[in-house]
Design a protein around this nucleic acid. Structure first.
Lengths: 299, 299
DNA sequence: TCCAAGTCATGCGTATATGTATACCTAAGA
DNA sequence: TCTTAGGTATACATATACGCATGACTTGGA
């Protein structure tokens, strides 16, 4: 095997890849924890080495040339392989010290993780925790997070999931707002109510209507995916919200609406991590710790 | 996309990969054009960074650990991607200066390439030529060569082949040796002859026997794949050889055997290069030049 | 058993890569 | 039109990586 043809600086390829994907040298430098001049020089060095113009400099932007675009495809594959290497290496590591990235929705992050993380840090001071707060699914394969807390079962078959509980969702509102609502014997009679919505899609409406509710767009005048804002709007009397009981019951200004009708729905809570990370001492420690703490929280 | 997880020194992966494949730090360093201390430090840096022992040091050898072996798989994929990047980049290059690697059998290399290369170098002094002499097929995908001269049509569908001629193979021997042979009217009557063989396999014997020859192992007491040695043994009167007429007819000590029966076989000569390299100015220039010169040689 | 060749690890001096600072430029908003 | 923010390229000082030299050790052959 002749290695001559791969005897170039692989870090220059990395610079090219991240610059192309991020769009600017500055962003790429930041992403890699280097400085812009360094990235600039690495990309230029690659161009010189290959005698190929990878980017046209247009104003303050870098625009990929057709050559650059073609080579980017190959650079991406190298990046994908690097990612897999990284994933496998983390899985092999027997070191407890280091960082773990946890992905969770904003409510879980705000209401449940603080105490869990504080306790974990007391027991494992060598483990650094980074929390990525997002209501979107995190791509564990791409290492956006090491561990995710989610309310849906993962579809990918290289992920490991453990169910740690159920979120019971009630309808909550201020006492003042609820006093103005009519008495009902089941949710199908509930028309004239403002529910602070999560997004514009009809998925939630469809699910509830399947359960007998009679909702339409008129019931969702306020929409925000930022759940903590939902909570505040609810506290301002702007409507009711769907909220997990572990959190809603802790809000002194809110009460359950139509408690006699029972909860609206339940959502499972899954703790997920990538299969390859299960062999990492550190990730396994954090996973098991959170699993135990969350289970205690729900049961 | 978070780039944090690929923010390690990719050149350390390269060091690990080449060291694992070559078996020693010294060999790997040589292959990469670096020094052994540098490779040693790069591999050690990677081990420290990952907190994983990749190699056990056993005597003067490095032995992959099980962790190392698992990670090697991912490093290989990164190397493969680097190779493809390199191939594509060469194909994109519009620079004429640089080197081109040509793979050819020993006879072609000894008899035909000298003049062709000399002429090419006079016309294109900026192009460096490296010739890899092997009777085995070179892997163009892995960049063992940029251009190959072969007597079989390539099977891979990402190679470009151009037929540049036919090698006419005759049976050659010294006049003295041939004088002792019986008169025959066709090759099926030829039993008591020593043919200096190419290898131990029966493939040549099978091909000739299909054409009516009656050969067996007894006809091949001397076997060497080194064709120039075959030639010398033939000149020493140790037997006859199959040889292309472009070369055999130039040997003053050899004559065609049984010329009245015609040539033994013809072999096509293909000039092959990887599809992606066709867009490289340099490779295309060399390819076209050799194609023309070889064609002139055969016709 | 001894010797020669080859291997890895380490210290030191040199070469190269990186970060800081700065100049110049572009794009967007007031 | 002016201002601000953000972008790239370049010079200089500093930090890091590399090559050379060397020592310790292993391996194979005489």
């Amino acid at each position: 095997m002749t290695w001559k043809s791969v005897n170039f600086d692989w870090n220059h390829i990395r610079a090219f890849l991240v610059t192309a994907e991020e769009g600017t040298l500055s962003a790429a430098a930041k992403a890699l924890g280097l400085t812009q001049p360094t990235l600039s020089r690495q990309v230029s060095a690659l161009e010189t080495e290959l005698c190929i113009t990878l980017f046209e400099r247009v104003g303050q932007r870098l625009v990929l040339t057709s050559s650059g675009l073609e080579l980017l495809e190959h650079a991406r594959r190298m990046g994908d392989a690097a990612l897999e290497f990284s994933l496998a290496a983390t899985g092999q590591s027997q070191q407890i010290e280091g960082s773990v990235v946890i992905s969770a929705g904003e409510l879980t992050a705000a209401y449940m993780l603080p105490k869990i993380i504080a306790k974990l840090r007391r027991e494992e001071p060598g483990i650094d925790i980074e929390v990525v707060v997002t209501n979107e699914p995190s791509d564990l394969k791409r290492r956006e997070a090491d561990i995710a807390i989610r309310s849906f079962h993962p579809k990918q078959n290289d992920l490991i999931a453990k169910k740690v509980g159920e979120e019971v969702i009630w309808l909550y509102g201020t006492q003042q707002y609820l006093d103005k609502l009519p008495s009902i014997t089941n949710f199908s009679e509930l028309h004239d109510i403002q529910i602070i919505g999560f997004d514009r899609s009809n998925s939630l409406t469809d699910v509830l209507n399947k359960q007998g509710w009679k909702l339409s767009k008129q019931n969702f005048s306020l929409i925000t995916s930022f759940q903590l804002l939902q909570l505040e709007l609810c506290k301002e009397g702007q409507g009711v919200i769907f909220f997990p009981e572990q959190m809603g019951d802790k809000e002194p200004n809110l009460v359950r609406a139509y408690e006699h009708l029972g909860p609206v729905m339940t959502l499972p809570v899954w703790l997920v991590c990538h299969q390859e990370l299960r062999t990492s001492l550190r990730v396994r420690r954090v996973f098991d710790f959170i699993a135990t703490e969350l289970s205690d929280n729900f049961y």
